[in-house]
């Protein structure tokens, strides 16, 4: 077992023990914090496919996070008001089923990522960052100005959505759902990184010329990576909305995009557990420092600065050293 695998296992154990301890000592707030960390980690796991593996610095991933959130908000609000979304030409009703909501969230955010990626990936570098930011902002202002689903005020959902056999309003049971999804996403990303597709995508980041010269289209590889990335972040958005039972345009804001990038940089770019560590640390700092001062972001910024300057591999990089070349 490599050192990084050991550290990753420890992090997973932490994500089991902390909520377990909180559940036994009856601290639902800690469970909710851990749930939030796991959901934000999931959003980061999604972005890490594009950013870490593909080298695509997207400053517009809030678009997918928000689309996931609004997929949940729109479906659930129609279900709670018994008002169908569409009557003609065919009937589409709202739903309170988490599984259906997740599917809709992933499909819609995947389609959005496909469209945004298809246009944005014609650029690179700073232009790519700017154009993804612009798309993100488009969604942000659209959500603010569309009154049907709350506009600026957002949309409240009174009861958490249903999952067969579980009481989702019970914090620990909702946490189990989120944890399983996060673990599954980590497992799939780990496989993806080592797969032929991952090899080609990672090589395209290091030398686009190389990948073109062996006959593969970097555009195609990156577009697919960007789409998969958007789908996972979209799923995280649906879970985040369900956690808060509230959706608002904030989910679409560029600060959200920036925070997801911060998780990855804090934890370690292209490291499997980078976004997990980053999101957990972010939540921890927000909880501890946020209690001391409203301006806790100053300390976060300082930490980020130190990591960018002195530890390019992020926290995983500090703990596990440079990534070992496998085989």
């Amino acid at each position: 077992m490599s050192r990084e695998t050991q550290i990753n296992s420890l992090i997973m154990v932490g994500f089991i023990l902390v909520p377990l301890w909180a559940w036994m000592t009856d601290e639902p707030f800690i469970i909710t914090l851990t749930t939030k960390a796991a959901i934000l980690a999931l959003a980061g796991i999604g972005l890490n496919i594009a950013l870490g593996l593909g080298g695509l610095v997207s400053l517009g991933h809030a678009a997918f996070f928000g689309i996931g959130g609004y997929a949940m908000g729109i479906l659930a609000s129609h279900a709670q008001s018994y008002d169908p979304i569409l009557e003609t030409p065919f009937l589409i009703e709202g739903t309170k089923s988490m599984i259906v909501i997740w599917l809709v969230a992933m499909i819609t955010s995947g389609l959005a990522a496909l469209a945004i990626g298809a246009l944005s990936l014609r650029t690179s570098g700073v232009y790519f960052i700017m154009i993804t930011l612009a798309f993100g902002q488009m969604f942000f202002f659209f959500s603010i100005s569309w009154p049907a689903y709350g506009g600026e005020d957002g949309l409240s959902i009174y009861v958490r959505n249903n999952f067969p056999g579980l009481n989702t309003l019970d914090p620990i049971q909702f946490y189990i759902i989120v944890f399983v999804i996060m673990a599954l996403a980590l497992f799939l990303t780990a496989r993806l990184a080592k797969s032929p597709f991952g090899l080609a995508l990672n090589a395209a980041r290091q030398s686009a010329t190389r990948v073109e010269t062996i006959g593969l289209s970097t555009y195609g590889l990156r577009l697919l990576a960007f789409t998969l990335s958007g789908m996972i972040t979209g799923l995280a958005g649906a879970l985040f909305a369900d956690l808060n039972r509230f959706v608002s345009p904030t989910m679409f804001s560029w600060q959200t995009s920036g925070e997801i990038i911060v998780f990855i940089i804090l934890g370690g770019t292209a490291r499997l557990f980078g976004p997990v560590v980053g999101a957990a640390l972010f939540i921890l700092l927000e909880h501890i420092l946020g209690g001391l001062s409203d301006f806790w972001h100053i300390y976060l910024g300082l930490l980020l600065l130190l990591i960018v300057l002195f530890a390019r591999g992020g926290i995983i990089g500090i703990l596990a050293g440079r990534e070992v070349a496998h085989d």
């Binding site: 993806l192 080592k194 991952g198 090899l199």
Partner: peptide
């Protein structure tokens, strides 16, 4: 080896494999 495998992958023309390890 990874670089050489990348070449072989390009020759196969099928980079759309997401699950099994390339190595």
């Amino acid at each position: 080896l990874q670089n050489a495998i990348l070449g072989a992958l390009g020759a196969s023309g099928k980079p759309w494999a997401f699950f099994g390890a390339a190595l």
